[in-house]
Design a protein around this nucleic acid. Structure first.
Lengths: 240, 240
DNA sequence: GCGAAATTAATGTCAGACATTTAAAGTTTC
DNA sequence: GAAACTTTAAATGTCTGACATTAATTTCGC
């Protein structure tokens, strides 16, 4: 594990990259302990603060975790779906907000992606995910539900639909895409009339899942996309 | 911008979170300059090394960039699709390798996701993306192409297909999913016979794009998925 | 007025110290 | 001998202060 003395990048960045490469290449496996900060400092011939900056970079990406105390140190972290998912949401959210992505483009991508679970969810969706969908639909029908709670329930509904595909990789990718849209969706406030139409579409989708009809799930999502887009258009036209 | 004195997390982590929240909330906008390290140290009542660790955490996520010199400092970075995409690939790749995700599961998710661009690519794919697909197909037919180059060309082919949807958000999500699979795909070495079948399917997909036939694109991808899965199965059975 | 040199303000790096945490080894007590 | 307590050691977390390096700005000389 060496760094290039000719590079003019920060030492801490170079060290972080060197360690990251070891992890990606599998030469440092999950739960392996890195040398102590003092040892790393000696190995790379830098000071301890510099090593620490490098380790913090890796910690920010959940590649390592640190533990204090006698048997402590930095350990290669087993990246969980939950952590990866949280990171992806942060990144995607910022990406959308910083690049002036139009609601239309983001919405199109979101539903296109979500439709990709239709086939598998129709085949595999179990009673628990279906029950979760029904529960969220019921919640969405409550008249005194706040806009924030309605949006959160909406996310939970789609999450259950996606999880019905019983493929964790797909869930990870789709849940990230759906949730990254949430801040944009929150800009829309729903009238009672809008909510009723959305809930109706949710019921249609849940019904299609129960009937194990992939095409109907897909069509339901397409209808929901059209509804969302037209809602957004009417709001933006009003100069909101 | 304050931190909770009761929290027992690392100071640098708390500070990083505080600044990240400011960015996400839009109170620190793109290209805004953060206070200098010395000023931040004073504001948060910590030392400069601690502030630096926090800043490195943010830099690791491409949330800030730093510049040396008189007018230097840390600036809120405009997260580009390219950066977000690189990060997503690293995360997804590690996620797959660390969680014993089976080839079957990952492959299923990858193709399910990719099919989500079929409709849009059929509608919008321009001559440049189509030409890119044709060029990769031609390259894949060269008999003296190395396995690595064949895989890279395969990725480029799918990348062009996805870009044909003309939706940057979709490209970002899908390209990440496709490329994260690459290390797993690289475990498979292709015989000449395998290559010929894959190239034939690529031609079929390219033809469907040119004919603007979304269903055919989708079917072509499904056939490619079946081919890939059976190839993987036969390899793993041989005890590889 | 223009070019070169000095200034300055920032990040990058280092050295050494102390604080805190945690597990394990050692010691005492019953 | 076992349980409870104490000590020790090794690690990360944090601080202080210094110096190095970079790059824009200002000043000075001509």
């Amino acid at each position: 594990m060496k760094i290039d003395p000719k590079s003019d990048a920060d030492l801490s960045a170079q060290i972080a990259t060197a360690i990251r490469d070891e992890i990606i290449a599998g030469r440092l496996i999950v739960d392996a302990r890195l040398p102590s900060e003092a040892e790393l400092a000696e190995q790379f011939d830098v000071s301890r603060p510099t090593v620490r900056e490098a380790l913090k970079r890796l910690a920010a990406q959940s590649l390592i975790r640190t533990q204090r105390g006698a048997t402590g140190g930095a350990f290669v972290n087993k990246l969980s779906f939950t952590e990866a998912y949280a990171q992806q949401i942060t990144t995607s959210t910022l990406l959308l907000s910083m690049n002036d992505v139009s609601f239309e483009t983001a919405c199109e991508a979101r539903f296109a992606l979500e439709r990709s679970c239709a086939e598998l969810s129709a085949q595999r969706c179990g009673p628990d995910d279906l029950a979760a969908m029904r529960a969220e639909i019921h919640r969405q029908g409550q008249p005194n539900l706040s806009d924030e709670a309605f949006c959160a329930s909406d996310v939970a509904f789609h999450r259950a639909l996606v999880d019905g595909a019983e493929n964790p990789v797909l869930s990870y990718q789709l849940a990230g895409a759906v949730e990254a849209m949430q801040p944009l969706m929150n800009m829309i406030t729903f009238s009672a009339r809008d909510r009723a139409r959305i809930v109706a579409l949710h019921m249609r989708i849940a019904g299609a899942v129960e009937a194990r009809n992939a095409a109907d799930i897909s069509d339901g999502l397409t209808a929901l996309e059209a509804e969302t887009q037209s809602l957004a258009r009417s709001l933006f036209k009003k100069g909101n």
